[in-house]
């Protein structure tokens, strides 16, 4: 399990380029922050009102007025900026954030994403996910390929309520990487040690294979 997540996170960090403004979702996407190359000038956005998230604070630096969107205590990096929630989502909705890396429950072959609600379970709310999927220039979803019952989370159509329709640009799992194009869902990479047969077996969605892989 831990190994699966590490594999996904290690691949996800490659989506981040020097100079980008990036929003990382809560959970597995947050782990990506620790792996961004030191020499990169990347600004991480927190939708509660900060561009330029720093590392977790030392005990003597903890400030209750300084938290991230996951409500964890954090610090800022030099050059950081604070702003209010309307401004925060203006920069998201207005296409000023280059990349958002989000967790997922299901992704469909059309690029639909479900990641906020399981019917019959208590609804917690969508937070900023529905705004991010329509605002950030590129949406990368990171999730495990199958659920704990062994069923594929990469679906023909999502069965859970959607966060957004046709919003995913790239899906990274422990088995493979898929891009979503005007021609549909394309397998572009196999994770190390994974065979094409395995990906086909574990994927409910219909996809094509990038010629470079064949």
């Amino acid at each position: 399990m831990a190994d699966t997540r590490t594999k996904i996170v290690q691949r996800a960090v490659k989506e981040i380029q020097d100079g980008m403004n990036v929003n990382l979702g809560i959970g597995m996407p947050t782990l990506v922050a620790n792996m961004i190359p030191q020499e990169y000038n990347v600004l991480l956005q927190s939708e509660n009102g900060l561009l330029g998230i720093g590392p977790y604070p030392r005990e003597d630096e903890v400030d209750p007025d300084l938290i991230n969107a996951g409500k964890e205590t954090i610090t800022t990096i030099p050059g950081a900026a604070f702003f209010d929630s309307a401004e925060s989502f203006a920069m998201i909705r207005g296409g000023h954030i280059d990349l958002a890396i989000l967790g997922g429950m299901e992704v469909s072959e059309q690029g639909d994403l479900a990641n906020w609600m399981i019917p019959g379970k208590m609804v917690k709310g969508m937070g900023g996910a529905m705004d991010l999927v329509h605002g950030a220039k590129r949406i990368v979803v990171v999730m495990e390929h199958v659920n704990k019952h062994g069923e594929s989370k990469v679906k023909k159509a999502c069965t859970l309520p959607l966060t957004g329709q046709r919003v995913v640009d790239c899906l990274i799992t422990e088995l493979a990487v898929f891009e979503f194009t005007s021609e549909g869902m394309v397998l572009t990479e196999l994770q190390e040690g994974v065979t094409l047969e395995e990906v086909v077996r574990q994927t409910e969605a219909t996809f094509t294979i990038d010629p470079a892989l064949q």
Partner: peptide, 25 residues
């Protein structure tokens, strides 16, 4: 959605009765 909530409050305070957003489509 969080961004819609922030904008609904901003709009209310700015005398704008309604607006369009892609969030939630």
């Amino acid at each position: 959605p969080q961004g819609t909530l922030a904008e609904r409050l901003r709009a209310g305070g700015a005398g704008i009765p309604a607006f369009y957003t892609a969030s939630g489509v």
